[in-house]
Design a binder for these strands. Structure first.
Length: 277
DNA sequence: GCGACAG
DNA sequence: ATCTTGTCGC
């Protein structure tokens, strides 16, 4: 059963309202979101489509940093096996030069929305934005300058995936990193794609991924010498694809960039600890 | 309508 | 997302 109200919804509406992201009708639209979580899948999808297109108008696929890039944040959510509700979300903040953890926080949550491919953001963004807001209030000195989430940004059917929605909702520069290719028309795991992967020889090598409309929406990036399989990097918000790739390449010791990797380890560990007690 | 499908 | 040890190779 997912018949419960997301307790973050008030925060979310307020946040969007304050950022001047929503007019009257759109506020109504977001107010209805918890009700929509209870509806059937086709209704959810129709509604999510509308919200995506509303929020998409705010996304910026260009570099607009304020100040210097110092802290990189990573977000990940881990789940309990056979339990669709209980999960743990972790935020890790690293110094981009030394790659040392300067801050981390995790929190037990319960998911209110099922996973629908293409609409991952509606499942994860409420929790991410809540955690970020808390960090911004409690320890603003460690608030990340750029955030890496594990999920796509612009590399998405509607060019508006998790990283975009998180970036826009929280108004933070955001990069999307996916471990698998999100397949859609014009971008498939076919032989052409596989042969392009084979051409990636050294860390930092990448190739563009294009839309059906021939727009560059993301990159396959080889992060280390050891990993044959690339990660898929795309713009989230307030970063260009070029910058996104540079940030990801810079903080990759292993295939998955450190912030996301450490967040994954931390949230998994926290989940195991809470299971014992 | 059917299949594919980030986490 | 989750289950899951060792093992082969640089």
């Amino acid at each position: 059963m997912n018949a419960c109200w997301p307790n973050s919804i008030a925060d979310r509406i307020f946040q969007l309202y304050m950022l001047d992201y929503l007019d009257g009708w759109q506020i109504l639209a977001v107010l209805l979101l918890p009700l929509i979580y209870l509806c059937r899948r086709p209704i959810k999808i129709a509604y999510f489509n509308i919200l995506q297109s509303v929020l998409k108008r705010r996304v910026k696929f260009s570099d607009c940093y304020i100040g210097q890039l110092k802290y990189v944040g990573g977000i990940d959510i881990s789940f309990v096996k056979d339990d669709a509700v209980h999960a743990c979300i972790s935020l890790v903040v690293l110094d981009i030069e030394s790659l040392e953890t300067v801050f981390s926080r995790n929190k037990m949550i319960h998911m209110t929305c099922e996973y629908i491919p293409g609409y991952l953001a509606f499942r994860e963004t409420p929790h991410i934005s809540k955690l970020l807001k808390k960090v911004r209030d409690d320890c603003p000195m460690f608030y990340p300058d750029v955030l890496i989430v594990d999920g796509n940004g612009r590399l998405h059917r509607k060019e508006f995936g998790l990283a975009c929605q998180t970036g826009v909702t929280c108004d933070i520069p955001c990069v999307g990193v996916a471990k698998n290719l999100y397949q859609m028309e014009g971008c498939l795991r076919d032989n052409e794609h596989k042969s392009a992967i084979d051409k990636l020889k050294s860390p930092g090598d990448k190739f563009e991924i294009r839309n059906k409309k021939n727009t560059v929406i993301g990159c396959a990036l080889r992060t280390t010498a050891a990993s044959t399989k690339p990660v898929y990097v795309s713009e989230g918000h307030r970063v260009s694809l070029d910058t996104a790739c540079r940030v990801v390449a810079k903080c990759s010791k292993y295939r998955v960039p450190e912030p996301v990797r450490l967040a994954d380890i931390l949230s998994r560990e926290a989940l195991r600890q809470s299971e014992k007690s």
